[in-house]
Design a protein around this nucleic acid. Structure first.
Lengths: 199, 199
DNA sequence: AGCAATGTAGCACGACTGTGCTATAAAGGC
DNA sequence: GCCTTTATAGCACAGTCGTGCTACATTGCT
């Protein structure tokens, strides 16, 4: 027998595949069960309702991104460190692109669905913290321009990164993942100038 | 009898109300017809299919924003002009907030629905142009820092504004419309420094 | 007055939805 | 060997969906 938590993860991954391929609208109980190779009844054994299933799938995306953020090597030039952290959020490969698409789909629905809204709020709070931490890293290492307000800069960097992700997901032809990365790098170079000694 | 185009606009506005209140998922033919006070059959007289209806509703949002952009007074300090243009996109009042929510909902679905994707691509192209024009305005008036690449700065400003809109729609408590405006103003002050003579 | 175009209404079909419910199979403790 | 728990399956219900279709009313031209 397969471990119960592993099955739940398999089902979440089935949700992701459907969301990426056909959109969140197609993530019905039936479709997810078929995608995972299970029956509807079996799926309902692991998730009592659809929102429970979707909530679990979204939470798992947040967890994975957070785990990668924590795995970033934080030694050396802090400009490099911050860019490496943001790299973990940008759609630079298949997996991260998928995460971004799932994030966008859930985000749009969270505007209107209260059950998802509270979860998104929680993930958002963690992200705000992460960006504040990045600005603090730059400031503490002396790289950040001293005339900048830390709170505003954290919000500005967060908004810029989310905007870049949005554009990279929607218009990959105009703004590819690497192109988005370059825009972020330009931004970092402006708020924390000086020779980083090789990015 | 009511003018046909006015009826189509009324129906588009019914779509907006539903999208804002209940999300794009609820914008079914039945719901839109009921919201507009018409029968399903009558609605289908003006729009043969649902995607035609939704496409018309989205296009109208783009048209309205574009009209307001063109109405901005372009004389005087170009920093003020550019900020005034961006003001027309930010969710600073009820109407603009509604437009942003509709934009977000359609945007998320456009990732997956080809019929909406081409339309969004068109709106996106107009927006890219608008931001390139803003950077050109700043550069031509001598306000833009001369060391900045125009193409990158247009993309950066565009991404920042979309990110700010996204956050203002999703987390109005953390990032209100005016707070987002302040972030954008900070950005403009950094890429086009110097005393603007009162913003 | 009469005819054609336009607007409005409403029903019917087949498909899909989430979830409640029951039934069968496998696993594990005693 | 038995019996409870866990896993898997599948059906049924009531609801919504988009759209094809027909019927009736209104308008406007001739």
């Amino acid at each position: 027998m397969v471990d119960a938590e592993a099955r739940r993860t398999e089902l979440a991954e089935a949700v992701w595949r459907i969301v990426m391929r056909d959109g969140l609208e197609q993530a019905s109980v039936r479709n997810v069960a078929r995608e995972a190779g299970l029956s509807m009844g079996s799926l309902r054994h692991y998730f009592a309702t659809q929102s429970e299933l979707l909530g679990f799938a979204l939470r798992l995306v947040g967890d994975r991104i957070e785990a990668r953020l924590r795995a970033v090597d934080v030694t050396g030039d802090q400009r490099r460190v911050v860019l490496a952290m943001i790299d973990e959020m940008l759609p630079l490969d298949r997996q991260r692109r998928g995460e971004c698409e799932v994030w966008l789909a859930f985000t749009a629905r969270a505007v209107v669905e209260p059950s998802l809204a509270s979860l998104r709020e929680e993930i958002d709070a963690r992200l705000v913290e992460a960006f504040q931490m990045m600005i603090r890293r730059l400031a503490d290492s002396g790289a950040l321009r001293p005339d900048l307000d830390h709170t505003v800069e954290a919000e500005r960097l967060y908004a810029l990164v989310d905007g870049v992700i949005l554009h990279a997901v929607l218009q990959p032809s105009r703004m590819s993942g690497p192109a988005g990365r370059a825009v972020v790098a330009t931004h970092l170079a402006q708020i924390a100038p000086g020779d980083p000694g090789g990015v």
